[in-house]
């Protein structure tokens, strides 16, 4: 688990690094909404647009698959579950379990959609500093009544700091348990117990130390409002992103393909 890097920011000089976080957030929201109903052609269009940006981050398809292998396995299981549960025309029957054409198509489509959502999410996380995300949350929530936007923004920022801390503590605890021959213990309940409780204890103590550190630095919620970085291409990206979403929505309409039939 400690090797999971879905959240990690990667320093870089790509155009996405400099893009205004608010535009990036809007684009991610729009794409994830359109992907929810996207067909194969719309998914392909989305992949062709997003992939060059992941390549610019040094994440080619093979590296992306290697990095997301755990999640891809999950998607394959999910697609397989659909292939055997969705009723339709059977293409293969093993021990009474039927794999249907419709189920396979639906499962693959859902898997592809989820993979794209993951890819976009990873790209977003890799090109966005946690501090920028905090600022964006504060900016978006400011007009919402009864929502303490500064507190919410701080919670987001703290969560993003805690996430890698939990993973690294989990690695350390697992190493410590293994060093005491914990890995040879056969009872899985005891294995989980000896990993989980020390981990929770350590993370709670870390949270307490953080409270003291924040207090020692006289932390208050009344801080200077964040300044946003611009690279001057925000309108271009917003326009292109909206165009892509509109094109994907059209490609996903059955009526569009009826024109060509």
């Amino acid at each position: 688990m400690a090797d999971l890097t879905l959240f990690s920011f990667q320093a870089g000089t790509t155009v996405l690094h400099d893009l205004d976080i608010r535009v990036k957030t809007v684009l991610v929201c729009m794409l994830s909404m359109v992907l929810f109903t996207a067909g194969f052609s719309a998914c392909l269009a989305c992949f062709l647009v997003v992939y060059p940006f992941t390549c610019a981050m040094g994440m080619t398809l093979s590296r992306l698959i290697a990095r997301l292998k755990g999640f891809i396995l999950l998607l394959i299981f999910m697609a397989a579950a659909r292939a055997v549960t969705v009723p339709g025309e059977p293409i293969l029957s093993v021990s009474g379990i039927e794999i249907t054409r419709q189920g396979l198509a639906q499962g693959t489509l859902v898997g592809v959609r989820f993979f794209l959502v993951m890819m976009i999410g990873m790209l977003f996380a890799a090109t966005t500093r946690p501090a920028a995300l905090k600022s964006a949350a504060q900016w978006f929530l400011k007009p919402v009544p009864f929502v303490p936007e500064k507190r919410v923004a701080l919670m987001i920022s703290l969560c993003l700091k805690f996430f890698p801390l939990i993973l690294s503590r989990a690695g350390q605890t697992a190493d410590a348990v293994n060093a005491r021959c914990g890995s040879v213990r056969k009872n899985p309940v005891r294995q989980i117990r000896f990993l989980t409780f020390p981990l929770l204890k350590k993370t709670v103590i870390s949270a307490d130390h953080l409270c003291l550190a924040m207090d020692a630095r006289c932390y208050t919620e009344h801080r200077t409002d964040p300044a946003f970085e611009h690279n001057g291409r925000e309108r271009l990206f917003l326009g292109a992103g909206t165009g892509l979403c509109a094109a994907m929505a059209v490609l996903s309409l059955d009526a569009f393909w009826m024109i060509f039939w």
């Binding site: 879905l6 957030t25 929201c29 909404m33 929810f36 999640f71 959502v117 999410g121 977003f124 964006a136």
Partner: peptide, 18 residues
């Protein structure tokens, strides 16, 4: 909110309004 904003925090590393 974090998941809606696009960070992959929903089940299986997914995210988004969709």
């Amino acid at each position: 909110l974090i998941g809606l904003a696009g960070l992959p925090v929903f089940a299986g590393g997914t995210s988004g309004i969709g």
